[in-house]
Design a protein around this nucleic acid. Structure first.
Lengths: 183, 183
DNA sequence: ATAAAGTTTCAGAAATTACTGAAAGTTTAT
DNA sequence: ATAAACTTTCAGTAATTTCTGAAACTTTAT
């Protein structure tokens, strides 16, 4: 299968960005192509369209599945696996965020938790531990916040994002109304 | 200069995470060490403490400066450059977010803008362009939102993040009060 | 049980990225 | 102008990551 120039340039761009987004070139291309394609694609189609080896496609799919970005589709009377994006653009982006948060913040959080348990032996360690505590708190706040945002329905979240810094005004308003009482 | 085990393990961890955070091993270590160190450090101190070549330190500092994560400090009567983190942990995290957003989303946004200008030649292109439009809108919303969040003062932002999904309730409340009228 | 159609694995090759160290460059002092 | 103290650059090397392709494996049909 060969691609129209516009689609091809998008797919190649996904390849170039791939490593910045957390995977690698071919995996980026594969994902880009799957998104651009209305019909699910077989591993062979991916391999031929992108000119990458069959083995590489197999590894790439495994990786994309570990990110929960692709799912398999079957056609009756055909035993090939066909792959397609695992949800809307919105959901895909969500998964990338979440997965990256896990890979980029969770390991550090546990290291910091451990480091903070036993206490400092001297001034240098005292300073260091204070900084570690700051980092820990920040990461924890972000992690919690990210989790809660993901529990909001996409359309509410869109409203919230469109509101932007206007949120602050709304929060101030709340303070005004509720000053004194709390729930 | 040599490090206490606790500090060393944090610094090494920063090295291991470095590439996930968008830089590389030594740059991660350098940043980790600078954060852990109360006094600014010279390039030679970085080089000796971390056992990396002087040249590598120089390149690393350049890179960290391009991320706006370190600044230079001078001591009267000493012409060495001493380096220190460019702000609080909070500010550093902010810079990393912003810089990554620029590197990971802006190029794609411009590609998509261009691709959406001229119109589709056939059904496949029509489908592809629709997906590109979805991606474009999502990236644009996120970019805008990120920009606005950065304009909020750290303490307001902390309040907001601590509130988490509770924001939704507040928003609903606003709707109730203002139904019919706007702002 | 065998063959056909498909998928996965993995050792080695290729490509990319990071690092070193010596040479070139810069700044300050005299 | 020269030297001393320091920094940067960059060609070559080392380390790491990615990719290939052939062999091994799995599943389904006969």
């Amino acid at each position: 299968m060969n691609l129209s120039p516009k689609i091809e340039s998008f797919v190649m761009h996904c390849g170039e960005m791939g490593s910045r987004w957390g995977f690698n070139r071919t995996i980026g291309q594969m994902m880009g192509l799957l998104i651009m394609s209305e019909a699910p694609l077989s591993a062979n189609e991916l391999s031929e369209t992108l000119n990458i080896s069959r083995g590489n496609v197999s590894m790439g799919i495994k990786e994309l599945q570990s990110w929960r970005l692709v799912t398999v589709h079957h056609i009756k009377g055909d035993r090939k696996d066909y792959y397609l994006p695992a949800g809307s653009i919105w959901e895909l982006a969500n998964r990338v965020f979440e997965e990256r948060r896990k890979r980029e913040m969770d390991p550090t959080l546990s290291l910091l938790r451990a480091a903070m348990l036993d206490d400092a032996a001297n001034q240098k360690e005292r300073y260091a531990q204070q900084k570690m505590a700051e980092i820990h708190d920040l990461l924890e706040t972000i992690t919690q916040w990210a989790g809660e945002l993901q529990s909001i329905s996409p359309d509410k979240l869109t409203t919230l994002m469109k509101l932007g810094s206007g949120v602050v005004k709304v929060l101030d308003m709340k303070e005004k109304f509720l000053k004194g009482g709390n729930q």
